[in-house]
Design a protein around this nucleic acid. Structure first.
Lengths: 129, 129
DNA sequence: CTCGTAGTTAACTTGACAGCTAACTAACTA
DNA sequence: TAGTTAGTTAGCTGTCAAGTTAACTACGAG
C-alpha cells in the first residue's frame, strides 16, 4: 500500500462523514475556532474535537494556537489530490467513449464489408451476446 | 439528513477503500466481469462481490446479466457528484483568497491612515493575536 | 441429467469508528 | 490565588464494515 493510496483512503473516508463535510464547507469560507465549528451541531465538543483530528490527520485542515483558541484552517492540498483522482478517472472514462464514437464511425464508413459488430471496445471481456 | 447528503456519504465511503478505487480505475477502461475484477487481488470472490455491491448501492457502477456473467459498468453520475462537491468548495476557498488579495490591495492604497491590520478576512473569529 | 463455471448469500470474527460522560490541561481574568 | 473559558484525553458502548468459509443459485456444455 503506497503512501498516496493511504492519503486517498483517509481523505475520502474523512469526506464520507456529513459532519466533517459541513466543517469543511464552513472552513472554505474562513478559519474558525473549535467552538464556532461545533455551534451548528447537536453534538458535544469532544465529538467535534475527534472529527477535527480526523480532518487534520488526512491533511484537510491544519491548526495553530492563539491563546486558548485553536483556529482551524482548510488546507487545499488534500482536497486537490482527492479531486485529481476523480478527474483522472473521469478523463479515462470520457476518452474511452470518444474512441468508441470514432470506432463506430469507422465501422459505418466500411460497413459494405459487414464485419460482425461489437457493442463495446471489449478488451478481455467475455463475448457480449 | 437529505438524500444528497446520503449519496455523498456513500460515494465518498465507497472511494475510501483502495480495493474499490482499483476496481473503479479498472472499469474506467472498460466493462469487466466479477472474476476479471477479482483477478488482481489477494481476496476471495465473496469479498469482491461485497465491494461491488457497495459500489452499486452508491450508484458508482451498474450490473447487467449475460448468461452466467454479470458485467460491471462504471456510471459517471456518482463520480460527477463527488467531484462537484469538492470543486464547489475549492471554488469558495479560491474566491476567498482572491478577495483577501483585493482587501490587502485596498489597505495598501489607504495605508496613510494606518488602521490596525487584520491578517485574515476574519468574520466571526476571535481576535487573532 | 450431471458436471463445471460464474457469482451470490449466510453466518461469523475482527477491527475501526461515532458518540457519550467525566476528567484533565492550558491560557486568560479578576 | 481562584475562577472561567477553550479545548483535549481517556474510557466506555453500540454500530457498522471488511474479510473469511461454507453453502447455495443460475446458466451452459456434454
Amino acid at each position: 500500500m503506497t503512501v498516496v493510496q493511504e492519503q486517498l483512503d483517509s481523505t475520502f473516508a474523512a469526506l464520507a462523514d456529513p459532519t466533517r463535510r459541513a466543517i469543511v464547507v464552513r472552513l472554505a469560507r474562513g478559519d474558525a475556532t473549535v467552538t464556532e465549528l461545533a455551534a451548528p451541531f447537536a453534538m458535544t465538543l469532544p465529538g467535534i474535537s475527534k472529527h477535527l483530528k480526523v480532518l487534520e490527520r488526512c491533511g484537510l485542515i491544519s491548526r495553530t494556537r492563539h491563546a486558548q483558541f485553536r483556529p482551524c484552517h482548510l488546507e487545499r492540498a488534500a482536497l486537490d489530490s482527492a479531486a485529481s483522482w476523480i478527474e483522472e478517472n473521469r478523463r479515462i472514462w470520457t476518452e474511452r467513449f470518444d474512441k468508441l464514437g470514432e470506432h463506430l464511425r469507422d465501422l459505418r464508413a466500411t460497413s459494405a464489408q459487414a464485419e460482425p459488430v461489437q457493442s463495446e471496445p471489449a478488451q478481455e471481456q467475455p463475448a457480449q451476446e
